[in-house]
Amino acid sequence: MTPDDRKYAESHEWIKVDGDVVVVGISDHAQESLGDITFVELPEVGAEVTKGSDCCVIESVKAASDIYAPLSGTIAEVNSELDATPELINQSPYDEGWMFKIKGFDAAELETLLDAAGYSSFLENN
């Protein structure tokens, strides 16, 4: 269920290296917890983000939740499909529901993130 081709943050974002960028989305557990997603406020392309800072908002029917940058860097691209169809995150959290890409990240920061097995056991223990 948890793809092992990427890393995970304890705040439930996934991070997949794709050449010189990382792709960021939220985990299946996170989308399930949020429920029906109705709106996504994406960061601006070119914005500088710092690991752990809020950079994006996901709204579900019941509440708004901040999404944190899992790595420091610059926003390279955002998934503008989510403007009209935010439910892509519910339907395909690991693929079509990706949220943004970060460039200029520090590869060493990647090592601080969890792998799939580590994230799965984090979920079991929390």
Binding site: F39, E59, A63, A64
Partner: peptide
């Protein structure tokens, strides 16, 4: 009614 999908709370 709001302009977009973003909800007031």
């Amino acid at each position: 009614t709001m302009e977009g999908r973003r909800a007031a709370r």
